[in-house]
């Protein structure tokens, strides 16, 4: 029930942002449509609603955005250099790394963050193991590999979601 309520509020806010008006007709219609949406799919919300109320988590989310952007930029430059330099300095392969994140959504956000940084791509998640396609496997040690791929993501995601 709490999930549906959270979804309803979120949907209502999104509706008002879409319309960018506070005309009472829009507000009422938005409530109705958000109610339907929450009633049908709110149960699938993968978050604990009470976690949403914690301002500390929102603070970490704000911090996470520039961190992610910086990592993304670095990876972009790295891949661009690979493309531009003569010869193929690639050593692609799929590696297996472990994560100590607990909740599903944290794992998925980790996977998505890894996918969105160029050069790495999450193929599958099985329990606490991520299978990742990597453009150049730079190490053989699992611990080190995990550290290289996850970078600072895991630390922040733990703060945000777990």
């Amino acid at each position: 029930m709490a999930r549906r309520f959270a979804y309803f509020i979120a949907g209502w806010i999104i509706w008002l942002l879409l319309g960018w008006t506070l005309n009472y007709q829009e507000v009422v219609a938005g409530a109705a449509v958000a109610l339907i949406a929450a009633g049908m799919f709110g149960g699938y919300l993968p978050l604990q609603p009470r976690k949403l109320l914690n301002p500390v988590r929102w603070f970490w989310l704000l911090v996470y955005i520039p961190v992610f952007a910086w990592q993304c930029l670095k990876a972009n430059i790295d891949v661009a250099l690979r493309v531009l330099s003569p010869g193929l300095n690639l050593k692609p392969g799929i590696v297996k790394i472990k994560t100590n994140l607990k909740s599903d959504i944290a794992k998925v956000f980790l996977a998505n963050s890894i996918t969105m940084t160029p050069g790495t791509l999450t193929v599958e998640i099985k329990d606490d193991t991520l299978y990742i396609h990597w453009i150049e496997i730079r190490s053989d040690d699992p611990e080190e590999m995990a550290k290289m791929i996850k970078g600072p993501f895991e630390f922040f995601l733990k703060k945000i979601f777990d």
């Binding site: 979120a10 449509v33 993968p46 959504i105 794992k107 998640i125």
Partner: peptide
């Protein structure tokens, strides 16, 4: 897979809401 399921759980309702927005407007 889990990735698809979690993202679907986040986005499906919003997609429905946006569909409703388009219909009503």
């Amino acid at each position: 897979s889990l990735i698809v399921q979690v993202m679907t759980g986040l986005l499906a309702g919003i997609l429905l809401l946006y569909g409703g927005y388009i219909i009503l407007h």
